[in-house]
């Protein structure tokens, strides 16, 4: 069963507008959605992200890497959080995405999470194997953290 990431993207206007909304109502709507994902046994992970002003961007365009505060300047939609779900197929992922309680100015980008089958032809590749090692280290750290 494939896993999908539901990536929440909002425009700055939608984010600003949401500050005037009843925050508890938003929490309740999201909570009910999360609960339905849990009750259906499809939720495998997810996090919300804090305000982009707390974040920063590293630009790799030049050798001298440039770090700037805040969101990446050119984008009109900000990445605010994500869910990871494990579902039967793409059709079911679409149905879950449709049910997400988001409003105007917001989009969900849904991407399938790669698994080892995506790299089956390169299983013996030195770099793919190294990458598996890195992935493990990260997972170990996440587990301990």
């Amino acid at each position: 069963m494939p896993k999908y990431m539901l990536i929440m993207r909002s425009t700055q206007e939608a984010l600003d507008a949401s500050k005037d909304l009843d925050f508890e109502a938003i929490i309740n709507a999201m909570g009910a959605y999360n609960e339905s994902l849990m009750q259906a046994g499809v939720m495998v992970g997810g996090e919300g992200l804090s305000d982009p002003s707390e974040g920063f961007v590293v630009d790799f365009s030049s050798d001298d890497k440039v770090v700037t505060d805040g969101p990446y300047g050119e984008v009109h939609e900000l990445f605010n959080g994500f869910w990871m779900i494990q579902v039967a197929d793409k059709d079911e992922a679409i149905e879950w995405a449709r049910r997400c309680p988001l409003g105007p100015g917001t989009k969900l980008e849904v991407r399938r999470i790669t698994d080892e089958s995506d790299f089956a032809d390169f299983a013996d590749n030195e770099y793919i194997q190294k990458e598996e090692g890195w992935r493990d280290e990260l997972a170990h750290k996440a587990e301990q953290g």
């Binding site: 069963m1 849990m38 009750q39 259906a40 046994g41 494990q86």
Partner: peptide, 17 residues
């Protein structure tokens, strides 16, 4: 593997209930 994952899904569902 699909079958085992269906069982996992039932298990997750039961744990939520």
């Amino acid at each position: 593997r699909e079958l085992a994952t269906e069982a996992l899904r039932l298990g997750r569902r039961l744990a939520a209930m």
